[in-house]
Design a protein around this nucleic acid. Structure first.
Lengths: 175, 175
DNA sequence: GACACAAAGTTGAGATGTCAACCAGTCGTC
DNA sequence: GACGACTGGTTGACATCTCAACTTTGTGTC
């Protein structure tokens, strides 16, 4: 898949390039941070507002867009989820009255997902404390340089995966 | 929970401090990267080796420890999982013959979890290509400085949550 | 217009994760 | 040595996620 540093003997597979200490620390700390932050955020959100973290991730873009509705595939792009996962989750949210589905006229395969009044109430109630949690657990612990470093690194990784990161400042604009 | 920049009027709650552009970019890119990397890694692992990503996370520490067995709570610490999740997952792995449970003599509430011969075969087969995947999707895309920045930032976050990050080099040792 | 192929979503089955409640054993303290 | 509190781990009910298969519609291309 990728050339190894040394030409390899004909038969046995080359010894894998294990992670060195520096690489392992970055990778392991990152994974652990992700897991712990997400479960902590999800727990607080559920306790205080009866919303799951996935609910929140869907409601935020819906609440910010012009007329409160988006196509399913747009929600997939924004969240990075598979369409199957999105479909299942939207169904559950529909049962709870947070969103509603309207068939789409211009493309009759498609569906508009609209945020309901209940959904808007829920997200507006939850957002302030959620942002405070994100600050407490992540943003406010780091310097601006650290935040930029993370955003830049993640951007590289996302581009490599064919996803769309939020744009950073143009080179030279920063500082 | 945290002082806001301006003294607030007596009654209504203070306007929340929303994330600015820089903060939002870091947070959103990070979340998206996590999600996409994890699902990509999990898919490859499952396809090629019949192991789930959680399986992998459990088998790695078990395979590296002296006698191939650990207490359940030790596995929880290393992975950052809740004990309930760990218990369920170990049960499923037990059914598939990847680990086995042995009651603990010194503390009779406890249980040793041991990796089986099958478990060891599975992890040894999967590890090389998994590491290659981690390199391809993450490690090899970033510079050493970026990896350190991520590890350092995650360390701060983890300490704040009471978790144990992998130790970084002492200040001054680096470079 | 007919054909093949791609895109948008849904569905069902099964794997995985969460929460709260529980059991059993240990530890501190009086 | 008895009581209460804590620790280690399991369980059941339920929420969520993944994978593969499917339906429906749009988009060339000849």
């Amino acid at each position: 898949m990728r050339a190894t540093s040394a030409g390899s003997a004909p038969s046995s597979p080359p010894e894998p390039r294990w992670l060195d200490e520096r690489e392992a620390r970055a990778w392991r700390n990152l994974q652990m941070m992700n897991g712990l932050i997400e479960t902590a955020l999800a727990r607080r959100l559920g306790l205080r507002h009866g919303l799951s973290y996935p609910d929140y991730r869907v409601l935020v873009p819906l609440s910010m867009v012009e007329d409160g509705r988006m196509r399913v595939f747009e929600l997939c792009e924004v969240t990075g989820w598979e369409k199957s996962r999105m479909s299942h989750h939207l169904h559950r949210m529909g049962l709870r009255g947070l969103v509603e589905t309207v068939r789409c006229d211009t493309d009759r395969r498609g569906a508009w997902i609209g945020i309901t009044a209940d959904g808007r109430r829920a997200i507006e109630a939850a957002a302030p404390s959620h942002v405070a949690d994100v600050r407490e657990l992540f943003v406010d612990l780091l310097t601006g340089e650290q935040l930029d470093a993370i955003a830049d690194a993640a951007e590289v990784v996302l581009l490599n995966l064919g996803a769309s990161p939020l744009p950073g400042p143009r080179a030279g604009d920063r500082r």
